[in-house]
Write a protein that binds this DNA or RNA. Structure first.
Lengths: 332, 332
DNA sequence: TTGAAAGCGCTAACAC
DNA sequence: GTGTTAGCGCTTTCAA
């Protein structure tokens, strides 16, 4: 590995001239510039990011903190993040938190020691002092997918409207008794989806019934049993709005195993459009979130904040992207 | 952010003493050690990894280079990598290559500039000069999932045996005409799976027929059409061995759409046991790779090499882990 | 057992 | 337009 000194020596200039020539935006004589570039090429010189980072107090790296990359919505987000970061010269260090605040704090601390230039979080809502602290230390933060009380910059989807339209779609198809399978209601995204469901019922004169609001908040695995148990004694539900695709898939299995057909007897709508949803039988009608795009937007937002650093930030901005209903075969 | 100087001042010692106390393995007077730790705690001092890395020529970070995190086998691997790396004090910087050698080289160069301590690759086989070069520069490398000619340390699965047993299982169930859906045969893992298939047929006196060796190497999407076209004019295949789950899922859809039943008319076996495979209808019989474990092993191997650095490595070691057939409902 | 000092590779005043 | 120099925060000789 050659250093800037080697380049300087070969080009017959000082290291600062090399530094300036390489930076691009500081005037350097064309002739010396050429000599520098020749030397760089000949030695295949690559600047040491650690030295640069140490000097500048920044690292051209961002931290990505998500619950678990194995959860099918995160790969696309992560990919959007990585592509976009790379295009701007950033690397991404990724950490899984398992929704555990201790893990999250540990990761944040490690990444702070690395002088990452900013953080992207998809995190649980409760307990976010560590994020507040980042803000207080003037370290850029953007939340993704999961919003916390409008306190931070964020990129989220229009959960309320998307859910409203998904449920409205079922209603428009003539269905009246429509169940919802909720997720963890301490996440705002699930509260919003729940609210969209209720509002759609209300706007179309359908009574809301707590009895058919299923709760699969703990682990997705339970969803199958909850739905199956219900159908063991009731056959009245015509439609199911599942607040994510995994729950929709579980529900479909449960409905089938209860001896009913999807969509002939029961229509099912999911949320997320994870990769597998189009491969199922029946293919899942679901709300597609632009996950890759959200990751991209989150990084763009973060980099803007990084570049503006110093100027004290005003009110946080929440970017809302549009999710759209993809109609496939799990609904009549 | 406090620095080692602040700690030194508060503890009334020199920075070198702080450094020694913190390092743990250099003798420091118990009393001064205590004063140092007190100061560290009081200031909540965290060492700057960039400075440490610059000095030591290492960064406590590893590079993870995979084709695409959205490919369902990679999240579990990545999770295994991250968990294990973190437990040893390493962060992981992840890069998607899209199987593109240019991207891969670019990522490698960026990460080298960051002085990552080692690389984990899941990469295509052709053209691996950049990996050779890493080795020549004495930068630790471990391959994962995809092996290249036994040239590098690697963690792979027993593709040949696992495929052999999967096909043997179909044969044992009384099936004779068994097709295979191959992947890109320039990847050794697919060549091995193909070889396992052939050997199983041969050992059980079944003629091999090129006509029912389907090739879905370009894009998984074609798989549906290839299979459907075949079944449009033939009804003779009793079993299908798909060399990954996505192809198995496509095949099942194609078989169903051709008016046949799975598994009553055609049994289908997949490979990988991606998350969704147990949620399908029918649930997929498939070969489960211990993906998380493989990621874990790859990191353990890498860290061992990092720790041994300097000692010139001998022959590369290939760790082979066992994949196992999971019998579910897509086979009779 | 401890401190002073050099230096990892880079950038940015500051001089000229 | 360019060189000299200091210094980012850390570790590690070298002396004491």
């Amino acid at each position: 590995m050659y250093t800037i000194k080697d380049v300087a020596k070969m080009a017959g200039v000082s290291t600062s001239t090399v530094s300036r020539a390489l930076s691009g935006n500081i005037p350097v004589n064309d002739d010396t510039k050429k000599r520098v570039f020749d030397a760089v090429k000949q030695l295949n010189y690559k600047p040491n990011f650690l030295a640069k980072g140490l000097k500048e107090g920044r690292s051209s790296a961002i931290g990505l903190i998500i619950p678990d990359i194995r959860n099918p919505i995160f790969p696309a987000l992560a990919r959007g993040v990585e592509d976009t970061a790379r295009n701007s010269g950033f690397n991404v260090i990724f950490c899984n938190s398992d929704e555990n605040i201790e893990n999250e704090i540990e990761s944040v601390n490690m990444l702070k020691n690395r002088l990452v230039d900013g953080f992207i979080f998809a995190t649980a809502s409760v307990d976010c002092q560590h994020i507040h602290q980042l803000r207080d230390e003037n370290i850029p933060v953007v939340l993704m997918v999961r919003n916390i009380e409008e306190l931070f910059d964020a990129v989220v989807t229009n959960n309320f409207e998307a859910s409203y339209h998904a449920v409205k779609y079922l209603i428009d198809r003539g269905l009246k008794k429509i169940a919802i399978i909720n997720g963890r209601l301490n996440l705002s995204l699930y509260r919003e989806r729940y609210a969209g469901y209720k509002k759609a019922l209300e706007d179309h004169g359908i009574d809301f019934s707590q009895e058919i609001c299923f709760n699969c908040s703990t682990a997705d695995a339970n969803c199958y049993n909850i739905v199956k148990n219900y159908f063991a004694t009731h056959r009245d539900i015509e439609g199911v709005f599942a607040t994510n695709d995994l729950r929709a898939i579980e529900a479909i299995r449960a409905i089938k195993d209860a001896g009913l057909r999807v969509p002939a007897d029961v229509s099912v709508v999911g949320f997320d459009d994870i990769q597998i949803s189009s491969l199922l039988d029946p293919q899942l009608t679901t709300v597609a979130q632009p996950l890759y795009e959200m990751g991209k937007l989150a990084v763009e937002k973060l980099i803007k904040i990084i570049d503006e650093k110093g100027k004290r930030k005003q009110k946080p901005e929440i970017d809302v992207v549009e999710s759209k209903l993809i109609i496939r075969n799990s609904t009549i």
